[in-house]
Structure formats: structure tokens, C-alpha cells
Nucleic acid binder design. Structure first.
Lengths: 344, 344
DNA sequence: CTGAAAGCGCTAACAA
DNA sequence: TTGTTAGCGCTTTCAG
């Protein structure tokens, strides 16, 4: 059923039908009602492609995600979708599944399909030539999470440096001095800031950081397991504590520590990063940093829609950069006797 | 840059440009090369909407998912995407985030955007009127996982009944007799089959199933925790073992058991379902059932593309139903001394 | 092998 | 307030 057939049924021209669809106020009440009734009866929906050919908007935004198996990203995605749905937009989710090659390809597709805006999650990095191309297109883009993109795009980030600094301070408070680091290498820029936070605190406390206690590992359970075994194997004596840049890394490390017969936190204390839902279920419960994922998504989407609206109203755009704060979750694994006790 | 401009640059008609895009063999080699060169230089891509208006295919499939935070669904989704990408298709992922209302809405959108086919993951159920409507549209659909849909659509399922029967047998082998069940209610049809498998084995072994040992709980960590506490509170004496319909439920239950001071598996043995990546990291490692998620996605996508091709070639379609087998993962939590030992 | 022209379904400027 | 009509960018028949 197309607009012409509706028009015939109603005994009017296609233009009038089009009007009740797009500018109903400009149609006489009686005609409008008659047409609307037929539209409802026939369950007519305008052809999306024909509309796309005429309009310059699709009520769709694109969301590019590094991995879908990582619940971190999905929580952010959920925040984005929530806002988008409220605004009557549909979210086109693109999953790179760890393949950086796909990033540009997906963005190309999104541009091709004329999405109204794009959100990039922890982008693996787009070269300047590419970002300039996007800018020429005048496509609103916002990045969520750390990335190496140099373009002057809207962004939402978490203050990882501060978060890691805070948790490092706790470790020192607990009396740990020889602190190892298992650093996931996945989104590199991000762990770099974490490491800075760690170093800053150590330095401020006058403790020398031993470089050979910092290990780059895969950003997952296996990485943590392997890294921990390696660290214990290499060091002359056990570290007091190990700081990790991700909960999954911590899980793997804990498994390794237990397997080697050591106790947590008595022999080695440990911290995670992310406050994954499993972090209270491992033994002992994991001290970690809670990141405001959902909120990142919500803010990211809001910033994007602001940009989209500015564009529609031909106002000039000012870049927005939002930085959110994380929160430490002190649990048993760090050996801090004082402030323990959380169930979920 | 549009087709007309390309045509002008090349000094040919738009028809010829269109031909090198769609039927290159029908264009003289020299003309073709000249045009192709310009296309490449200008980085011209045909307008997606204009194409959609003419073609009846979009090289896009839709994938409707109940939750994105559940890694189960995402693994299936990954399988689907993998196949789709190989075929040169893009996957449009729609996340219902547990809101059944959204299912039809999303499918409407997908139909509207003329996707070439739709995959429904653990559909919450569509009424007959709706499924008939889809059938009239002649839209290829495949369902993955149990659902209450009555339509004669292609489907890929796991034999949950057999899987649960197998794991129940193991529990009996381990000497457990009084076995409780924590049954997640989320995708109801699915857990129903599991329960059947459980009952069948118990019956075959001549053990009476006590109905008051079967609890319906939320399909997540919290559900398992609450359900387990309730079960222990209600029963006159501890069950020998508890079977759950999901790993997350098991995690919560384990937490409750430990919290109440009981040992696993000595006091209460436990099993999960799903072989979640955390299942080897909880203490003790969880006996569970490994489901071929990725494979389900891959098969589902293949079946869909078969259907799409049949439709293109106007062959008549025969419904395909695939049933995959699961595999038990015996670990420490079930108290089976014999066959333990898996790391990852 | 190539071009002219009709048409896909819709919107919007222009007339009436 | 409504209708007529010219596009939007592309594909495809039909002639040549």
C-alpha cells in the first residue's frame, strides 16, 4: 500500500496525504480525519527509502562498539539506547568484535545510510584524514571513553587517572609497599592514564616504582592468569599487592595466586577496575573501581542529540567534553580491614 | 557526488554508469575502465535510499535480542554477525532490554527498512495474527532458541531436555538423591524442557520429585541468592544437591550457601547451565552444561541466508529445524570426585 | 554496446 | 485548503 493508493481511496491527491503525514495542521480537519482513518485501516507506513531520498534525516543514530561480549561496552550502549528511544530514535549498533579494520567500514556504512549522528565507543583510533572527511560531511560524532582521535569532537570520558590514584592510595593506606601492576593493553590510551595515576601517588608517597613489576597482559581472564604467574615467577619475592586495570584481569590473577597456594589478601592483596557484576562473587570479594558506564552512555547520547539539534537549527556548534568521576569499592581482596562489607 | 555527475565527468549517460555498477559485463571494457576510474577517484558510492527504492534488497538482516547484557545472547549474535559479514551483509541489532513490548516495534522497523531477513533470539512470543502478517510479507524469519511462536518458521534450538537429563544423571551417579531445583523463569519455554529432562531422569531412577523443592527464581545472580536462601529456609533438612537452569543463578545460590556457613559440594552440591566464562573462577569451580551458542548463531544465519536465496530464486521454501546438542562440564561443585580438572 | 526515458514512493514549491 | 508537478538518485526497459 503506497501513498497513491491511499490518496485514491480518500479521493484526494497524494500531496494532501503527504501533508497529513508531515504537516497535519495544514489540512482541513475533516479531510485530515478521513485520510487518517484510511491510513490507520490500511496500516500504511511511508516507504522508508522514498522518505530518505527526500528528507535529510532518518531518526537513526549509529553506535560503534569494540566488543559485544564485554559487558562494559554493552552497559554504555544501553545508556545510549535508552536516551535514543526516548527521543524517538533507533540505534544502529555496529560490533567490531575487536577487529579495528571494521571501524571505518562501519562508519562508512552509517554515513551511507544517512544516520543523524554517530557515537564511537572507545574508538581504536581514526587517522586525521578520515576524521577530516567526517567533519566535511558535517556529521555529528561523539566519542565515549578514551581514544587517540585528534579531531575536535564531543566526548565523554571517565577520569581514570584520578580513579587509579584513589585506589592506589588505599593500597598504601593498607600498608602495602611493593605493588605490582597488571596492565591490560586493549584500549591503550586508557590504561596509560591509569598508570599515570598509579605513578603519581607512588611518587607523592616517596615510593620508587619498580618497572619490572609492571606487566602488560591481555585484557581478560586468561591474560590476568598468565601475567600473575609470570610476575610471581620473575620477582625475587612476592609483591605485597597487585593492582590491575580490569576486573577480568584480577579474576585470572586471583586464580593464579590461589593455584600457587598463596592467600588473598594475606600474602598478596589485589584490586580490579570496573566493578563487574562478578566482583562480589569471587573469593575474596574484589576491591575495585566502579565506573559510571550507563551514565556515560546517557551523557554521550544527550551530547549527540544536542549537536544534532544545533545542526537542524543551523546554530553553530561548540564542542563539549564531559569528564565523569569513578568511585572506589573497597572489599576484602585489598586487605583493608576497616571498610568492608558489601553484598551485591 | 551522484551518478549524474559521474556520468558527465565520463561523458556517458547515467545508464552506463549504473551498468558498470550493477552489470559490468554488459559494458565495453574501455568505457567501463574509464568510468570505474572516475568512480574510484571520486570515491562515489550509490545513494543507499535511491537504491533501496529500486531494488528489493538491502543486504541487511535484522537481529532481535532480548538483552544485550547477557553474554549468552551476545555470543549467538556474534555467530550470526560472522556469517552475515562473510556474505557481505550488515546486521542491524535490536535490543529489547527485557521489554517484550519492544519486540513487535522493532520488527516493524526492520520490515519498514526492508531488511532481507530477520533472526529472532529467544523470542518472547508473537501472537498468531502478527506472525501471519509477517508471512504475508514473505519475509524470511528464523528463530534461535526456544520460543512460543507457533508459526512454521525456520528454527535452531538446543536440546535442553537432553542436556538437563544428562546433568541430572551425573548428580544421581554422585549419590545425590534429594535434589532441589532453582528454575529461572525468564525464557519460560526453555526452562520447561529442562525441568522435563530433570523429571524424566528422576522418574526413570524411581526417585520421587518433591514439588516443594522446585523454586522459580529470577534468572540472574540475585534470583539465585534469594531462591537458595528461601529453599534452605523452607526445607526441613538440607538438600543433597541443587540443580539450576543458569550459571548466574548458580553463582547467587553458591554465595547464599557459603554465607549460611555450608560447604560446597560436601553439604550441598550444585550445578549451573551455560558454561559462562566465570564458571571456572568461582569456588568451587562449577559443574555446568556447555551450550554451543556461537554455533547456534552461525547455523541460524546460514538457514536464514538459505531462505533468502530461495526467495530470490523464487524456489519454494521448506522449513528447516535444527537441533543442537549440549555437553556437560563436570567440575568440583557437583561433588563428583572422579572426573574433575579443567582450568579454563 | 549505449542512451533516452519511465518509474520507484515520497516531499514541497507553486498555482489555483 | 487543495492539486499539479518537479525533483530526490538510481535502475531498467526499450530503441537504436
Amino acid at each position: 500500500m503506497n501513498i497513491k493508493q491511499i490518496a485514491e481511496k480518500a479521493g484526494v491527491s497524494v500531496a494532501t496525504v503527504s501533508r497529513v503525514l508531515n504537516h497535519p495542521e495544514s489540512v482541513a480537519v475533516k479531510t485530515r480525519e478521513k485520510i487518517q482513518k484510511i491510513i490507520d485501516e490500511e496500516e500504511y507506513t511511508p516507504n522508508w527509502f522514498a522518505q530518505g531520498l527526500n528528507f535529510n534525516k532518518t531518526k537513526t543514530i549509529g553506535l560503534v562498539i569494540p566488543h559485544t561480549l564485554n559487558s562494559t561496552y554493552m552497559e554504555i550502549a544501553n545508556g545510549v539506547e535508552e536516551v535514543a528511544r526516548q527521543k524517538g530514535y533507533i540505534t544502529f549498533m555496529c560490533n567490531m568484535e575487536g577487529n579495528p579494520e571494521l571501524e571505518k567500514e562501519y562508519i562508512d556504512q552509517l554515513v551511507n545510510r544517512k544516520v543523524d549522528g554517530i557515537i564511537l565507543l572507545y574508538s581504536l583510533g581514526l587517522d586525521d584524514e578520515y576524521t577530516e572527511w567526517i567533519d566535511e560531511l558535517d556529521m555529528p560524532v561523539v566519542t565515549i571513553g578514551e581514544s587517540k582521535i585528534k579531531a575536535d569532537w564531543d566526548s565523554v570520558k571517565v577520569d581514570n587517572r584520578a580513579a587509579m590514584a584513589e585506589i592506589t592510595s588505599y593500597m598504601l593506606e593498607c600498608g602495602h609497599r611493593r605493588i605490582g601492576v597488571l596492565r591490560g593493553t586493549d584500549p591503550e590510551a586508557e590504561t596509560m592514564y591509569m598508570l599515570q595515576g598509579f605513578r603519581n601517588v607512588m611518587k607523592a608517597s616517596g615510593i620508587r616504582v619498580e618497572e619490572k613489576m609492571i606487566f602488560d597482559v591481555g585484557d581478560n581472564i586468561e591474560g590476568g592468569y598468565i601475567g600473575m604467574k609470570k610476575m610471581i615467577g620473575v620477582l625475587p619475592k612476592l609483591p605485597d599487592a597487585v593492582i590491575t586495570t580490569g576486573d577480568e584481569i584480577a579474576y585470572g590473577a586471583m586464580d593464579a595466586i590461589k593455584e600457587m597456594g598463596y592467600r588473598i589478601p594475606e600474602d598478596i592483596a589485589i584490586t580490579g577496575f570496573g566493578n563487574d557484576r562478578m566482583s562480589t562473587l569471587v573469593e575474596p570479594k574484589l576491591t575495585t573501581v566502579e565506573l559510571p558506564y550507563r551514565k556515560m552512555g546517557i551523557y554521550g547520547a544527550r551530547v549527540l542529540f544536542d549537536h544534532i539539534e544545533e545542526k537542524e537549527q543551523k546554530k553553530k556548534h561548540v564542542t563539549r567534553s564531559i569528564k565523569l568521576q569513578a568511585k572506589s569499592r573497597i572489599r576484602k581482596s585489598c586487605g583493608h580491614e576497616g571498610r568492608i562489607g558489601e553484598m551485591f
